[in-house]
Every structure is written in structure tokens, then in C-alpha cells.
């Protein structure tokens, strides 16, 4: 197993795409953190329904806005790290490297476990770095933009930070699972983007129509929607959010729902991996 882990470590490090996707994640997250910090007061006012614009009293960012900056990684890093996951098996099947990899590590469980651990650790590292950069942005740019008492020493903010890392890791694993199951990079990438960005929002809108009103609550348990609750600062319903997209699922329930979906995908992929030809 140790040898398989070293192999996975070399595989990850020697792919340009790993570095590009990780680098772009850090840059985009930093830019988002700057944007969220600069607009912390505005977003706080919108959420609280306070008057904005000329003549209105200045609003400083609250703790929720502070936590939003620290969770900037959930905006794009999740998808980019998901791509790193897709490539874990996708590249091997696309370029035929699965053959020499399986001859060097013939026990398929060992090879798969090494990939899971390698990708998850890499994703966690990228997630932690993104949060660290967001924290630096808060320190450098955030001075005077947040209300007194708002800061890092807050329990719920710590939970959001932890949830962000978990969400990034789960996205990397769902990408890995899609690449593993489909053995086709374009198909896996398409699903990785289309499911959270298009399919789930459409389903949630459809579930909110009157005819399906009894099913409206089910929309909260759609996997990516539920997973998003991992970085929710509060479960209190935000009136500024359209009804179809409101979510009162707790971070724990949301996280467990998403984790269960990822686990099912990985188990199906693992069973097929043992049965399928290389």
C-alpha cells in the first residue's frame, strides 16, 4: 500500500493539470475573497434588509459576511478540485496508463485506495491553502470593513472553515468517482459541472411549483444542494433568497447527505473496478 501511495503522489505531482487547477483555485479564491471583503457591508445590508445607497448609514460587515470570505473556496475551488479527481482515473483510462499501473500494483483495492487518499489529501491541502489566503485577504483588506467583535474567534465561523475543507474534499472525491465509474473524461467533466450548476437548480425550481408542493422539501436533499449547507453560517431562512433556493438543512444533515451520495458513488465504482476488464 505504501508503494501505491508513493506512486499516486508521483502521479499527481507530475501532471501539469494538477498544478494548473490548484494554482487557478488559489488565484480565483483570493480574488473572490477580495471581492467579498470589499462588499461585506453591502451583502450584510442586503441580508438584513437594511437601506442601502446614497444617504443611508454605512453598514459594516457582520460575522456571516466574515465567514463568507473564509469560505470563498466553495465557489470555484470545489469544481476545479473536482477536475483533479476526475483525472485520477480518467487520465489513466484515456491514455492507457491503467495497464502499467495495474501491472505495477496488481491489487486493485490498493491502487484505488491510494488514489482516494492521494486525491483527498491534495484537495484538503488546496482547501486549507485557499482558506489561509482568504484569511490573509481579511487581514490585509478587511480592516475597518467589519463590525467590532467580528473576527476569527467565532465557533460558527470555525465550523464554516471546517465545512469548506470537507466540501472541497468531497468534490474531489465525487470527481474521482465520476471518472472511475464512467472511464471517460469528457463525460465525467460534463456531469461534474452540469449536475450542480444546471440539473439541481432546475430540479429545485420544478419541485417548487404548486403541483409538486408536497415534494418541495425534497429539493433540500439533492446532493450538491445538501453539500452546500456545509458552509452555511446559519440555517435561518434568508428572505432575500427565492423560495425555490431556500435551504434550512443543518450543516451536519447536509454534509451527511452529500457524503452518503459520494460514498455510494465510490462503492459502485469500486465494485465495478474489481469486475471490469482493465
Amino acid at each position: 500500500m505504501r508503494g501505491a501511495l508513493v506512486q499516486e503522489w508521483i502521479r499527481l505531482r507530475t501532471l501539469r493539470s494538477t498544478w494548473w487547477l490548484s494554482g487557478v483555485s488559489l488565484v480565483v479564491t483570493t480574488m473572490l475573497a477580495v471581492a467579498f471583503t470589499l462588499t461585506a457591508g453591502t451583502s450584510t445590508a442586503a441580508r438584513l434588509g437594511l437601506p442601502r445607497g446614497a444617504g443611508s448609514p454605512a453598514v459594516l460587515g457582520d460575522q456571516a459576511s466574515f465567514a463568507l470570505v473564509l469560505s470563498s473556496a466553495m465557489q470555484m475551488t470545489t469544481l476545479l478540485v473536482g477536475l483533479i479527481g476526475v483525472f485520477a482515473f480518467g487520465h489513466d483510462y484515456r491514455h492507457g496508463t491503467i495497464l502499467p499501473m495495474l501491472t505495477s500494483v496488481p491489487r486493485r483495492n490498493s491502487l484505488a485506495s491510494a488514489k482516494l487518499v492521494g486525491v483527498a489529501l491534495w484537495a484538503a491541502a488546496v482547501g486549507v491553502l485557499c482558506i489561509a489566503l482568504s484569511a490573509v485577504v481579511l487581514v490585509v483588506v478587511g480592516g475597518g470593513r467589519f463590525a467590532p467583535g467580528v473576527g476569527f474567534a467565532d465557533g460558527r465561523t470555525a465550523r464554516v472553515v471546517g465545512g469548506t475543507v470537507i466540501l472541497v474534499v468531497l468534490f474531489s472525491l465525487i470527481g474521482l468517482g465520476l471518472g472511475w465509474l464512467l472511464r471517460n473524461v469528457p463525460a465525467a467533466v460534463s456531469l461534474l459541472f452540469v449536475l450542480p450548476v444546471a440539473v439541481e437548480p432546475i430540479l429545485r425550481v420544478l419541485l417548487s411549483v404548486d403541483a409538486l408542493h408536497s415534494l418541495a422539501g425534497a429539493g433540500r436533499f439533492l446532493p450538491f444542494t445538501a453539500g452546500g449547507q456545509l458552509v452555511a453560517y446559519t440555517t435561518k431562512v434568508d428572505p432575500s433568497v427565492p423560495e425555490a433556493f431556500r435551504n434550512d438543512l443543518s450543516p451536519l444533515a447536509g454534509g451527511l447527505t452529500f457524503t452518503a451520495v459520494v460514498a455510494v458513488l465510490l462503492v459502485i465504482s469500486a465494485v465495478l473496478f474489481r469486475r471490469r476488464d482493465a
Binding site: 508503494g3 508513493v6 508521483i10 507530475t14 495497464l99 502499467p100 501491472t103
Partner: peptide, 26 residues
Amino acid sequence: ALLEAKAFHPTRSARNHLRMLAAPSR
């Protein structure tokens, strides 16, 4: 074993390709 000639990632260097496959056997 050599089963397919082009079983490599196109941008990973030849040396790194070998290092990766050499790792499990130290």
C-alpha cells in the same frame, strides 16, 4: 510486461513515467 506501446500520459516526462511505475517496487 509491455502490452500497449502508447500507454503513457503525453505530457509526463519519460523519466517521471518510469519513476511513477517504479515506486511500488521501490
